[in-house]
């Protein structure tokens, strides 16, 4: 079956005075892995639940393919969902959990068994079919939930922070595994997370949400390197938002533009040779430093009072150890790493 596109058209959902979805429109491509990324309360889970049919929007439409499903009951949408807390059925064993959606679809007993087993094999749990849910680890439970969500061959898959309960190593491993599963099955997938690294690792595109709106939707590299706003820049990683007055040209001259610039912490260097001929230079004094194994973090206070965060790879950190607070520090960045962004919006109260 060909994967389906999803169209969200001006979806709106409020809870009292709280606007969870503020006229959200979004075109999800067939077969795409799209991540909804945002802080808690940004509306990403509400959006996912509206897609699933558990939240009924007050206005707007949801189209799967060209079918309007806005008012369709959740059990008729044929969408596979993986939940944050797995939501496995403890009174059934692993196999029965995975067979359940097939039983609901009146698939014959034998075919259900075969398809459930092959879904379990796909998540490498073939040997666990007869186990009770209570005998499984968190990672294994997550795999059962995955198998249960794909076994009925849904054309759309929704995942609501499915890895947040796992420890870091397992989480990173599962990120790659889920992505590979997506590539194998080609299901249009919408994934919710608040972890920007997870979003960068897994997605074809990332939609960054805040206050019920999509702030930016782009491919991971674009959204990381060329954020459209200060909010997106800071949410996606350590970002330094600089006024034009903070910077000078690396060769000593003045900069022509007075635009607000965003420079990632890892794109600031101590060595002027790293920034090319047309680079920018920032001068300040060391405010603090920390060793993190793979890198050094330096906090540098600029004359304007703004604080600069620098991430220096350990392999290139000559001199970092000797620096002490108050020492003058010159930071260099290549021109192409200084991305102009709109001036910071005034924070809404």
């Amino acid at each position: 079956m060909a994967p389906l596109p999803i169209t969200l058209d001006a979806l709106r959902k409020t809870y009292g005075d709280y606007v969870a979805l503020d006229d959200v429109s979004l075109a999800i491509r067939p077969g795409e892995f799209l991540t909804l990324l945002g802080p808690s309360g940004s509306g990403k889970t509400t959006l996912l639940m509206a897609l699933a049919g558990f939240v009924r929007p007050e206005a707007g439409r949801i189209l799967i393919g060209d079918r309007d499903v806005t008012r369709l009951a959740p059990n008729r949408r044929d969408i596979g969902i993986v939940f944050q807390n797995y939501a496995l059925f403890p009174h059934m064993d692993v196999l029965a959990n995975v067979e359940y959606p097939l039983r609901l679809r009146r698939v014959s007993r034998r075919e259900a068994r075969e398809r459930a087993m092959s879904a379990l094999e796909r998540v490498k749990l073939g040997a666990f079919a007869g186990r009770d849910i209570s005998q499984l680890s968190g990672g294994q439970r997550q795999r059962v939930a995955l198998a249960r969500a794909i076994v009925f061959e849904p054309r759309i898959m929704l995942m609501d922070e499915p890895l947040s309960a796992l420890d870091k190593n397992l989480r990173e491993h599962m990120q790659l595994e889920i992505r590979r599963l997506h590539d194998d099955l080609g299901i249009t997938t919408i994934y919710v997370t608040h972890d920007q690294r997870e979003a960068l690792t897994m997605s074809d595109r990332i939609a960054v949400m805040k206050d019920g709106r999509i702030r930016q939707i782009d491919a991971p590299q674009d959204i990381y390197c060329r954020p459209g706003s200060g909010f997106v820049a800071e949410f996606m990683g350590e970002a330094n938002i600089l006024a034009g007055g903070d910077c000078r040209a690396a060769d000593g001259g003045t900069l022509s533009s007075a635009a607000t610039l965003m420079v990632r912490a890892e794109n600031l260097h101590l060595d002027p040779a790293d920034c090319g001929p047309d680079g920018i230079r920032l001068d300040g004094r060391l405010a603090g430093k920390a060793y993190r194994g793979e890198n050094w973090l330096l906090q540098v206070e600029l004359p304007s009072g703004r604080e600069l965060m620098m991430s220096i790879p350990s392999a290139r950190s000559e001199g970092c150890e000797e620096l002490s607070p108050g020492d003058p520090v010159a930071a260099f960045a290549a021109r192409r790493h200084a991305h102009p962004i709109p001036a910071p919006e005034p924070e809404a109260a």
Binding site: N75, G80, F83, A87, R148
Partner: peptide, 11 residues
């Protein structure tokens, strides 16, 4: 959440 899951699976 189990009932929600069951509904998403078609019940």
């Amino acid at each position: 959440g189990q009932v929600t899951a069951a509904r998403s699976l078609g019940a």
